Computed example of a mutant assay.
Amino acid sequence: METRLELDVLIYPDEVRIATPEDLRDWELETASQVSIPTVRLFVALYPYNPAAMSPNHETAAEELPFVPGQIIKVTGDKDADGFYHGMSLTPDLSDVTSIPDSGAVRRMVALFDYDPWENSPNMDSEAELGFRSGDIIYVLGDMDQDGFYYGDLHGQRGLVPSNFLQLFPWD
């Protein structure tokens, strides 16, 4: 039978010593105060915003995120000195209707299960499919095809998604 002894040690330029519980508590408190975990929030755009035409900061308008109503935006941190947040879009730009096939209908759906095309796909050509995880929001573009797949968008990636893994997630 093997006996293991594990010790935490503190290494200093002039000594090495076994750490006491107080040393570890002090280190954890000191480290925790130095680590900054950004606040992450989700916003839904209520109005359109076109930085080129609407930004009060004409010099930096190109760095700003345009959005349309219904678009979901992930925001990190707090407002900057100009009153702006740092964010990224989690939904496709729904104003780009040129890339929406056939009927032009865009529906928001939630994934009920994980889906890995390489493991779960009934199709021989699974490279045209998107993988996703349970809880992902997928924007379905157009109608279901004859094989039961939608054409969907997940974080800007587009491909086929199986309808039986999804459930409608209303906009309101």
Rank of each mutant, 00 (worst) to 15 (best):
M54C: 01
M54Y: 04
M54A: 15
M54L: 14
M54W: 04
S55N: 11
S55D: 11
P56L: 03
P56D: 07
P56W: 01
H58A: 13
H58K: 15
H58L: 13
H58W: 10
E59A: 01
E59W: 01
E59G: 01
E59Q: 06
T60K: 04
T60I: 03
A61W: 03
A61R: 06
A61F: 06
A61V: 04
A62R: 02
A62N: 07
E63W: 06
E63Q: 13
E63G: 04
E64L: 02
E64F: 02
E64G: 02
L65Y: 07
L65A: 00
F67W: 03
F67G: 01
F67P: 02
F67A: 04
V68S: 04
V68C: 07
G70C: 07
G70Q: 02
Q71Y: 06
Q71F: 05
I72P: 03
I72C: 08
I72W: 09
I72F: 09
I73A: 07
I73F: 06
I73G: 03
K74V: 00
K74N: 12
K74E: 15
K74L: 13
V75R: 06
V75P: 06
V75Y: 00
V75C: 05
T76I: 05
G77F: 04
D78R: 04
D78H: 01
D78V: 01
K79R: 15
K79E: 08
K79I: 00
K79V: 08
K79H: 03
K79S: 01
D80F: 11
D80I: 03
D80L: 09
D80C: 08
A81V: 13
D82Y: 09
D82K: 09
D82F: 09
G83Y: 01
G83K: 04
Y85H: 01
H86P: 05
H86K: 08
G87A: 15
G87I: 07
M88H: 08
M88W: 05
M88L: 14
S89G: 12
L90C: 09
L90M: 15
T91W: 03
T91D: 09
P92F: 08
D93V: 09
D93C: 10
D93M: 11
L94H: 05
L94Y: 04
S95Q: 12
S95G: 15
D96T: 11
D96A: 13
V97E: 13
T98Y: 11
S99Y: 09
S99L: 13
I100M: 06
I100L: 10
P101N: 13
P101L: 12
P101S: 14
D102Y: 14
D102I: 12
S103C: 12
G104M: 11
A105H: 14
A105V: 15
A105F: 11
A105W: 05
A105Q: 14
V106L: 15
V106F: 13
V106H: 11
R107D: 06
R108D: 05
M109K: 12
M109N: 14
V110S: 03
V110L: 06
V110Y: 02
V110C: 06
A111E: 04
A111D: 02
